[in-house]
Design a protein around this nucleic acid. Structure first.
Length: 153
DNA sequence: GCCAACGTTGGC
DNA sequence: GCCAACGTTGGC
């Protein structure tokens, strides 16, 4: 069992959207490292911290889980889609993603609060200039955050 | 809106 | 294969 942090802009798709839908395809990732995490390392049932980015109060907004193995991102084949990739073909897909399932909406744990905890000091999300939209979370970081948010693993 | 950080592109 | 230029991310 592994743990992950996945960023989403709440104006595009936030925790309330996931609470409503229950399940969402994490399409549109166009970064190789993030793709590799989904394609090669995620397993169904892995824990996900749902993080709101590029918004007035960035931070962890809920908990989810990996719901499917990775599969080709359909938007890469669609010339009308903003995620279209002319170098990808159905024979040789370049982009993959998993689906994510809702677990809980939590209180917001703002980025500023995360920075105050020495236990989280090594999180990639706190590193300067971090832009990666999917990052691994260590088991002790996961347990610490869930305890602070008052939810059970 | 600014700007630091980083990934990608393309000329050589 | 190097590296400068450019584009994007994302916090502030």
């Amino acid at each position: 069992m592994r743990y992950w942090l996945m960023k989403s802009e709440p104006t595009e798709y936030g925790i309330d959207d996931l609470a409503r839908d229950g399940h969402v395809a994490w399409f549109g990732v166009r970064n190789y490292q993030a793709r590799n995490f989904m394609r090669d390392e995620m397993r169904v049932g892995d824990g996900v911290l749902f993080y709101h980015s590029s918004c007035p109060e960035p931070g962890i907004a809920g908990v989810a889980e990996v719901a499917t193995p990775a599969y080709p991102d359909a938007t890469q084949f669609d010339p009308m889609n903003k995620y279209y990739d002319p170098k990808a073909t159905p024979d040789k897909p370049r982009w993959f993603h998993v689906d994510v399932r809702f677990r809980y909406k939590t209180r917001l744990m703002p980025l500023a609060e995360m920075r105050t905890y020495p236990e989280l000091a090594n999180m990639r999300i706190l590193a300067r200039g971090n832009r990666l939209s999917i990052t691994p979370v260590a088991p002790d970081e996961w347990r610490f955050i869930l305890a602070k948010l008052g939810v059970k693993d």
